[in-house]
Design a binder for these strands. Sequence first.
RNA 1: CGGGCUGUAGCGCAGUUUGGCUAGCGCACCUGCUUUGGGAGCAGGGGGCCGUGAGUUCGAAUCUCACCAGCCCGACCA
Length: 579
Amino acid sequence: MRWSKLFVPTLRDAPGDAEAASHKLLLRGGFMRQLHAGHYSMLPLGWRVHEKIAAIIRLHMNAVGAQEFHLPTMHPARIWQQSGRWDLMGDEMFRLQDRKGADLALGMTAEEIFATAALEITSYRDLPQQWYQIQTKFRDEPRPKSGLLRVREFYMKDAYSFDIDEAGLDASYEMYREAYIRIFKHLSLPAVPVEASSGAMGGSGSNEFMVPSDAGEDDVVMCTKCDYAANSERATSALAVIADDEGPAEPELFDTPGVRTIAALAGFDGGATAENQIKTMVMMADGAITLALVRGDHSLNMQKLVDGLGVNDLRPATPDEAQATLGAMPGSLGAVAVAGLKIVADPALQGRTNMTTGANIDDKHYRGVSVERDIAVDEFMDLRDVAAGEACATCGAELEIIRCIEAGHIFKLGRKYTEAMGVFVLDDNGEKRVPIMGSYGIGVGRAMAGIAETHHDDNGVIWPVAVAPFEVTIVVVSMRDEATVEAGEQLWRNLRARGIDAAIDDRDARAGVKFADAEITGIPWRVTVGPKGVAAGNAELTDRATGTTVEVRLADIEQQVVDAIEAARIPTGAEAPLL
RNA sequence: CGGGCUGUAGCGCAGUUUGGCUAGCGCACCUGCUUUGGGAGCAGGGGGCCGUGAGUUCGAAUCUCACCAGCCCGACCA
């Protein structure tokens, strides 16, 4: 393309409300513009990047034998009601009505729709099936943020596997997991697979692909030594065993005037250190008061509680609700002798004795509490946040917590959707079998933002060759010098003839403007053709990433550019596509 | 949904505290001349429902109320 004809509205200053690096730089580079919160218009340069990313994902999906579909993005309510997610999805689903008053939804994911298509699979011989699409998804996010990182309308590659049994699902899942590793490598996204919570999708297992970045929204617990990595919503650690005294035969009530917090009780004469306290969290889980107990020095992870209880809606109870149920205000709450409420406790409390906790009487606590003896715990389940510095449960080394962007997520779904939609096949005994599903997602725009977050400097994004809007741009320093123009134009023609995605900056602008635009748009290679160089038979080749410039004979520049780009097209170490 | 902040030209901002004259600055844009290897110089010029609505006032960008929108921090997810 010719810059003189391109619409690339680069900005010297980023809009004041942009915060994340990718957000600022994608705006400044003229890649995109915000239409309203969570909805972005892709401008020509941005769309080129977006499409290159989509093409790479498509390449690797096709390589493992997945078949591309294109489903409607507007769905009838009926299909979502059938799976139960019409209600489950709540406010996150965009809903509308047609002229007849029929309820419709904008698709936020497509399990139900693909499962509907799967109704026509009738024989076990047709399994497994690997299906995918790259299609717009709508989610009414409570808080869109950070440019393309969290939006309400986005392209997602969503793939679905259908297998006859668990072993088949395991194989499909592993196939996608490996394909994802190849995809992220191809995209130059340093994504690591981590154990994850399945959240609202349900299912038996899931991995997220996490890109370390301060702009991310997830905390990932990573071992500094072995390859253990898990989302904090799932992560565990090894705790030192605490040896308790047996304590008294029954809990002792004692006065704790004004003591409202774990810390206050730890500093109170006759109190207890935090690790010898029981923290009682009063939660409202799907409308029912539930007590969640963790050790005093631990913090409750809400997602773990959601997963452990299998509920949809969870929030802390209000102080009034807590008082109405337990008879005391937060600060004096406990679970000793509480009956009629669901009580769950973190395993760190299992077997503990001689503990201290609230007595459900304002300004009074119990000491000498034995967890199993004095509290009617329904179930022990992992509930606590792992803290940095704790020991890895696998190898014992120190754990660290790293902020990450979730670039992909794969799930073993189970039979929830196939069952709901009534999908079945006949097996080799003529018996009805419900296929088991997996689902596998990558956000295209999010990947783009993730690349920008991990590949930029103060002057702009530094695109990897594989996704760059152009692989090389030729800066013609002076449009007034005929020999220079001709040298630039000829190089441009030759590079394109050799399959290089090249642009030429033929604007009648000052060189500085062209250099700045080449940098802010992040094109990985720049060839500078200027009057002095051309007169001497030279051009310059500049590497955007390092800023280094080498002088190259005009006769050699074409080959040198081709070599540099071809070497970078598939990142070193990436497996060749399995086509 | 809770907390904090912000809406003035395409972008970045000042002006608002203490109401007052034609609403200002930089960048960008248009015209002309000069310039042409790191975001040019000079001269001239265009562009504003001051987020929306109501109110107070002789008079509102400025004060009051309501609403809308956007950003950031928390609860939610590719």
